[in-house]
Amino acid sequence: MTKLFDTLFIILTLACAAAAQVTVPQQATAGEAATLQVSGGGTLYLVGPGTAIKRDVKSGEVTLSADDLAYAGRYTAIVNGRAQSFYVSPAKPQKLSFMARPSRVPVAQPNVISGAVFVLDHNDNLVTAPGAVKFELGVNGQAPVSQSVPTKDGIAYIRAASGKREGPAQFTASVGDIVVRRIVQQVASDPCNLRMKAQRSGNDIAVETDPVRDCSGNPVPDGTIVTFIETTNEHGKSTVDARVKHGVAKAMLPALPGATLSVASGVVLGNEIRWGGQ
């Protein structure tokens, strides 16, 4: 008896399924309305990326709103057990998600700045259609360096050298009239040609560096440590870790005859002075 009912139920379901037909759109775009053709009426289930909709539909044209198809990807429409799939493509680029690293970079260094752009439509779908992103890097007062990079699967990536001038560099990425800007602070590199001069000041030697600059001529930031070293055979060693202030570092060292004065900053060595006078 039970088997008979089961058989009847299956036959009825199949009959209904055979009665309902759903026709999906050939092309659909995320964030735009689309229509389905349904014959026979019934319950429509629409399942897609981040979407699950249940709706009673009548036979004929069924409109899916822009919100129903907000996300790009594969959707499946089911009406009374009949399923049809269709693909919703991303819309045109509307947004750029731009990651620029690092936020601070020494000048004149090759391949130290990296930028990655994700091209998105207005619903944050990754626009996978091939396109080009234009990157520009420039410090105020200088012509920016630009480069166009094709996107691959919606992503464009660039590695760039830092400029020769310190200062906040504008790092922009653009697609059409969509422009996103990041700031990369270009800072002075290691000191270059570190030089000091020494002169007697009472019983001491006043040592002072020339303006401390990197190899591109940018002044190193204030607070940078410059180490003055005085070495003698009799009195051992004297050191002063002086801070660069207003571009120069100064210190007082004991005036010892025969002393050797040297200067260094980080791993960079400067000139040496032999202090011979009384």
Partner: peptide, 27 residues
Amino acid sequence: AADAKPVQTNYLRWDVVSSGSNSNEWG
């Protein structure tokens, strides 16, 4: 320490740039 001139620095030039955008966007 003869003739040493103590100087207290109020002037420092450290530029720390936080971001290029005020928005909360990713990246």
